[in-house]
Amino acid sequence: MTATCTLTDCGTTPDTDYSMDDYQGPEARWCPGCGDHSVLSSVQRLLATHQMAPERTVFVSGIGCSSRFPHYLRTFGFHGIHGRALPVSVGVKLARPDLDVFAVMGDGDCCSIGAGHWIHATRYNVNMTVLLLDNNIYGLTKKQTSPTTPQGFKTNTQPRGSYLPALNPLTVTLGITNASFVAQTADWAPQHLYETLEAAYAHQGFSFVRIMQRCPVWTSILFQDAVRDPARVAVLVHERGIRDAGTEELHKHHIDHDPSDLDAARHLAEEGGMRLGLFYRDASCPRYEETRRQAAYTPAERIAVLEKEFDRHAV
């Protein structure tokens, strides 16, 4: 993919020319048929479209199948510990607001062990793109119940069926003060997925994208009906929403939803179901890293502050 040079730009050839291959890391080792492959392709396309400099792009992840994500890209990556991708991302962004930061988490990562960070990172509203790859199961550790596992679904830890109704990541996020971008898409709707990533990346704030993601090994059955029968999937449509003609053509069930209407977004999320689209966006929410941004200083300036502090404590 080649970056186009327009008249409104400088009129010279840009000095970067990254193709999708330039973002390609080692071959991804997810299972064949895993939804993560599709997300990876869309992300590479996004990187190339925006000609993001690989060295100025950071993918942070936790632990789990989806958290292998950074290894398969040629950018900076941080494959940390289970549930903690968001604090690390916040730290990167606080130190370096100039970097493009993406966090990639699974449902165990984000909604279970890291749930506290999810709430607070949403509220911080740091400018970053957050991908929740939600396959409704712990895959890497072999089929344990996750918070988003449907009630009754049998797993190795709850063999008589999961005991509780599944947690809804959309209602949770939409319930958090200062939430600024909440969207849902699916790995089997690649164009919608891509358009959603575009909108998420364009949004200045904490862009939370829940991606319904098939696990061919443990939860293939959970998304099967939706994949086979487009009528089971509804699309949120609105002029300020995420638009993709192909998706709207395929899925006849449309819900007109204004993404600036938080009450309606919460109501829609609460209803559940397979719904693709932008639930909520508010570009006016304060961003923590902007609020806290400090001017750069020289060593001499810093020492001057220190001397002042000494004066204040001198006897």
């Binding site: 950071v58 942070v60 941080f78 940390g80 903690r84 968001l86 604090p87 690390v88 991302s89 916040v90 730290g91 990167v92 962004k93 606080l94 130190a95 370096r96 970097l99 506290g116 960070h117 709430i119 607070h120």
Partner: peptide
């Protein structure tokens, strides 16, 4: 938000 995040944010910043 908690002690764990306090470490994580510091590590993220150091890494950056």
């Amino acid at each position: 938000e908690d002690e764990i995040a306090a470490a994580g944010v510091a590590i993220g910043a150091s890494y950056a």
